[in-house]
Amino acid sequence: MTAIDSGAALPKRRADFIPALLPVALALAALPFIGSSSTWITLTVAGLSMGMMIFAMASGLTLVFGLMDVLNFGHGAFIAVGAYMAALVLAPLAGWTQADALWSGLAALLPAVIVAMGVSAALSIAFERALIRPVYGQHLKQILVTMGGLIVAEQLLYALFGPQLIALPLPTALRGSIVFGDAAVEKYRLLAVIVGLVIFATLILILTRTKIGLLIRAGVENREMVEALGYRIQRLFIGVFMAGSALAGLGGVMWALYREQVHASVAQELTVLMFIVIIIGGLGSVTGCFIGAILVALVANYAGFLVPKLALVSDILLMVVILLWRPRGLFPVTSR
């Protein structure tokens, strides 16, 4: 037997930690410009919480693209659906939301989150069937059809809930700030950061520790081979599509509570931002989406404070810089 073990020739891959350090580097670099450390803490926490919300919304989008090469410009519809569901569920729960105890505030949010995620997931099945499946493999049609779907979804929401802004007051217990030294940090933002971290950790655990997760990662890389090993990628995809839409619904709840208002225009407003985030992160990468979302949100918050005129284009500028450095994003995973 020819025993071969060309281990000496094994190329060692350097752990790719540079992108993960970018948010830290950015935050530290911003400190001297901002000057006051209390302002810096406030801005940084605001950026982190906004980043976590965008991450929740966009994580499904990146997996859906990675797995099936589907560009879903209608993803934002599920954000809007989630937001309206929160308004619907929280309205009759005013007793709980207006109580001072933290547990009653959270107890009111729980059914809102469950309904938002459930309804988003359920609607996503119909969305996938009607709009995505007929245009597999055709990017231009996907963009047109899913954008059309977004507009229709928006109009349906206006028809159902009216065109006006709906107020969505934050539960009393989540209002106000916690003071660290001389820096005030809003409670709700801390909650958003915690929720975002929990979502990220859960997704990473699923992707690395479960067979479904392995299949998703394998499928992002080579879906033909996953099929040749005997797995139906279509089923996997629908599962990911539903989960991603549910997360968008959850992101919608978080965003609406943060803005304390609900309006269907949020769907279009956030679509471009989500695409910027997943392109920065590397299409198909959940970790990339996480880092990308934090970067975009931190840059937006710092720029808004330091150079308000730049704030509107800060995310585009960030994307250009990142893509000049890494043309396929921070964590390239697909060969596409």
């Binding site: 392995l214 990662r217 080579n222 081979m225 996953v226 797995y231």
Partner: peptide, 18 residues
């Protein structure tokens, strides 16, 4: 060859074993 490069050797075989 189409190995799943992001997965370990073991994970590639776990998927293949169905």
């Amino acid at each position: 060859m189409a190995v799943f490069s992001d997965l370990t050797v073991r994970e590639n075989l776990v998927l293949a074993a169905r």
